[in-house]
Simulated scan of single mutants.
Amino acid sequence: MRGQAVAEPSALPGAVGGRAAQLARTGLRHGWTTGACATAASTAAYTALLTGEFPDPVTVTLPKGQQPGFALAVEARGDGWATAGIVKDAGDDPDVTHGALVRATVRAAAPGSGVLFRAGPGVGTVTRAGLPLPVGEPAINPVPRKMMREHIAAVAALHGGSGDVEIEIAVDNGEEIARSTWNPRLGILGGLSILGTTGIVVPYSCSAWIDSIRRGVDVARAAGRTHVAGCTGSTSEKVVMAVHGLPEDALLDMGDFAGAVLKYLRRHPVERLTIAGGFAKLSKLAAGHLDLHSARSQVDKGFLARLARTGGADDDLTAAVAAANTGLEAVRLCSARGVPLGDLVAAAARDTARGVLREAAVAVDVICIDRAGTIVGRVGP
């Protein structure tokens, strides 16, 4: 068995509206979240516990009504327990959990206990406040828990069970995979989180990354941090730590998603935000772009030339900036002539950030760096 879903999400009724049509045009496939896989596996395991037979494929209902079927990669039963496993298919999304084997072991629990959740090997445990689960709980998020409870109740009603069960979710090699995620920084230790609000992975939506940014803000606030930093990468994180001495749990790996940081802080403010990143990316923020990915925004040399002009560039320098091969070349040209283009970009990026934050009382400073981590532009709050 391949352990992949039988039906493509884009072919399912009501599949994510216009996004499904867009993906159909590009040929990209939707995938399934770890939460959907855990729900399908626990449904199959509980069915086998009550009937002795594993449904294969097993069909589940997702939060928006889609009903995909999942093939089983693992089936095992013993005295009072049953295990089913499903290989996660993330479709065409570059998801680090694509191909991971998600296992659910269901055991009978004490009468009246309802559904209890346990973290098996490869699933993390919450160790810091600020996440949507209490400290000490398995990192199985609220929507997957709700999905599993609903499906356990449906199986119990169909086959005469009590619905009182313990569900242990495990992910093969999950602890190793989790090292490539935000989990250690968020205080989720020992493995992966079981995620998903719709059950569907939309290729290149980067919803997990954006959700991690939000959880990073939540954890920082719960830890009493009043100063956080949104950084485009590891080099800018090192610079911020050196400049401001911020602890790791105050650092937000925003990547290209400056807008996600700013919009969430608008609703959940802290006293101070540092935005740090490569000059080229932050020049896009300065020009008003909130998504800094190269496929969705470009360095605007004309914009840089106009900024340089405001900083005192003459006609020749302005023309040279407009014709520069890269943003960093424009900075070097201006630096040699005493025009502070880096500082001007930092100030314009701060203006964009303040516009998104609106009335939120968040002081903003910006640090622009080159590839070596040298600060080439800076503005205070």
Score class of each variant (00 low, 15 high):
Leu189Tyr: 03
Gly124Asp: 08
Asn173Phe: 03
Arg179Lys: 15
Gly120Pro: 03
Val123Met: 07
Pro184Trp: 11
Ile152His: 02
Gly187Pro: 05
Ile194His: 03
Gly160Trp: 08
Arg179Ile: 03
Ser193Thr: 14
Gly160Cys: 09
Ala156His: 03
Val143Lys: 05
Glu137His: 14
Arg145Pro: 03
His159Asn: 04
Glu150Val: 07
Ala178Trp: 06
Lys146Ala: 15
Leu192Glu: 02
Leu133Ala: 07
His159Pro: 02
Pro144Tyr: 06
Arg185Tyr: 02
Trp182Gly: 00
Ala170Arg: 05
Gly112Asp: 08
Val126Phe: 03
Arg185Leu: 13
Phe117Asp: 04
Val171Tyr: 03
Gly191Thr: 11
Ser180Asp: 10
Pro184His: 09
Asn141Ser: 02
Gly163Cys: 11
Ile152Cys: 01
Met147Pro: 01
Pro132Arg: 09
Ile167Met: 01
Pro138Thr: 12
Pro132Val: 11
Val135Asn: 04
Ala129Met: 04
Ile152Pro: 00
Pro121Glu: 15
Leu189His: 12
Glu166Lys: 00
Pro144Trp: 03
Thr127Lys: 03
Pro121Ala: 15
Gly190Arg: 06
Gly174Ile: 13
Val165Glu: 04
Val155Leu: 06
His159Lys: 05
Arg185Asn: 05
Gly187Cys: 10
Val123Glu: 04
Glu150Met: 07
Pro142Asn: 11
Ala156Arg: 03
Val115Asn: 05
Pro132Ala: 12
Ala119His: 04
Val123Trp: 02
Pro138Gln: 10
Gly174Asp: 08
Glu168Ala: 11
Glu150Ala: 15
Pro144Arg: 05
Gly122Arg: 04
Ile188Trp: 02
Leu131Arg: 02
Asn173Ile: 00
Ala119Arg: 05
Pro138Phe: 09
Arg179Glu: 14
Gly114Trp: 12
Met147Trp: 10
Asn183Asp: 09
Val165Phe: 04
Ile194Gln: 02
Pro121Phe: 08
Asn173Lys: 11
Lys146Glu: 14
Pro184Asp: 12
Gly112Arg: 06
Met148Val: 15
Ala170Asp: 05
Ile194Gly: 01
Ile194Met: 06
Arg185Ile: 11
Met147Ile: 03
Ala157His: 04
Gly187Ser: 10
Asn183His: 07
Trp182Asn: 13
Met147Glu: 06
His159Cys: 06
Lys146Gly: 12
Arg179Thr: 14
Glu166Leu: 11
Val135Asp: 04
Gly174Pro: 04
Val171Gln: 03
Glu166Gln: 13
Lys146His: 07
Leu192Arg: 07
Glu168Trp: 02
Val123Pro: 01
Leu133Lys: 06
Arg145Tyr: 05
Ile167Cys: 12
Arg179Ser: 10
Gly174His: 08
Glu137Cys: 10
Gly136Arg: 09
Leu131Val: 11
Asn183Gly: 09
Pro132Glu: 12
Leu116Val: 15
Leu158Ile: 00
Gly161Asn: 07
Arg149Thr: 14
Ser162Pro: 01
Gly187Phe: 08
Ser162Gly: 10
Ile140Arg: 01
Arg149Gln: 14
Pro134Asp: 14
Ala129Lys: 07
Val155Gln: 03
